[in-house]
Design a protein around this nucleic acid. Structure first.
Lengths: 204, 204
DNA sequence: GCGTTTCCTTGACAACCGTCAAGACTTTTC
DNA sequence: GAAAAGTCTTGACGGTTGTCAAGGAAACGC
């Protein structure tokens, strides 16, 4: 046993278990949503029993907030590669649009869970802190794309990061709903919409 | 009893009661959201008892869909006056932005209920038909504003009604969340954002 | 190898949910 | 005014929920 693995004993094990439990829970949450996911259902879709939740989390709310925080923590780096690899403005837009479409398809359950939680935060103020923090990291994520796009295009951005995020989020949410409803062509529409929108985010 | 009031006997009374019950239910739904609104809580905040719901509605889902449909039916005409009274492009934008801000403040509970229901429809397909229909009427509502704006400005719209709705809805939703979280200046921001956005919806 | 701590399961609890049947009250009809 | 139809209340049902205590199982320290 090396010192590196020996270090992983006291509270690290605890955190590791929380992460594993959250990973399991995300499967159920993405399928049923916030309100209809009971702790028993979450536990049934995992390797644990329903009682273990209260050993690692204070209550249901803490578990769910932890879950979404954990997912979004990796989510916010989705476009890092797109930004890093971009050499031209048009290339960045194309890669960004493709990645958006890809995540609508591949991670639809996680995205609808996020929108579910954000809607719930409009009613439950105990959710608002976490939602506002996550929303800010998403705004920053989008802004890294837009500001890089502005640099490559040699034109400054025409609006705030807040607006840029709001606009793109609106289109994304619309596409997600359309995709989940089985609407044809919604993915190609999203791609085209992003291609149309990005240029107008910069000053002429 | 005139023939006009005598006409209001068979099924009209039934519909009238449904509307009254839905009006009461909307108060609770706007306060607690879809998931946490029980039929008993809805009934407690009304003049009826909890059993009466199943006399006028088949189940909880039908009640809630009926409620949101009823609210949105009047909601989609909110900007009709703005469109009818507009004489200049800039005037239309100003009146539209003011009206948006006004409804964020005055009808926040109803709007968050709508976003709640739309999020739930991503999980429950029994909600999707109603949500998609309502969403379409909202898109049409926005398009009446944008197309009138284009006419007054003498420039054609640069994008589809779908995109216009998606963009504005994104900003609106963001402002609503900010307003409910007590963020300062969010209303003025929304007004300014709409002023910035509208011109770019038209071809240069 | 034993005692202690940590981890997890099981079972029970009180509360709440949607639904519906039984019946009381009201209104209409003849 | 009695009968019928419509309207609404009450109370109960089976089921599910979050929570937690009791205790078994496993890991750990010495």
């Amino acid at each position: 046993m090396t010192t590196a693995t020996a270090r992983r004993t006291p509270a690290d094990k605890h955190d590791e278990r929380r992460r594993a439990l959250a990973d399991s829970a995300l499967l159920t949450l993405g399928e049923l949503g916030y309100a209809r996911s009971s702790l028993r259902e979450i536990a049934n879709n995992s390797e644990f029993s329903h009682g273990v939740v209260h050993y690692y989390f204070q209550d249901k709310l803490e578990l769910i907030v932890y879950c979404v925080r954990q997912y979004k923590a990796t989510c916010v780096h989705r476009y890092d590669g797109v930004v890093a690899d971009a050499t031209t403005a048009d290339g960045l837009v194309a890669a960004f649009a493709d990645k958006l479409v890809e995540t609508v398809v591949d991670e639809a359950p996680m995205h609808r869970l996020w929108y579910d939680l954000r809607s719930q935060s409009m009613f439950e103020d105990s959710l608002r802190d976490a939602v506002l923090q996550i929303d800010q990291t998403l705004e920053d994520m989008i802004w890294r794309v837009v500001s890089t796009y502005a640099d490559l295009a040699g034109r400054p951005a025409a609006l705030t990061s807040r607006v840029a995020y709001g606009l793109l989020d609106g289109l994304f949410q619309q596409a997600l709903l359309g995709h989940l409803c089985g609407r044809e062509g919604v993915l190609d529409e999203l791609r085209a919409e992003v291609h149309d929108l990005m240029p107008v985010l910069l000053v002429p």
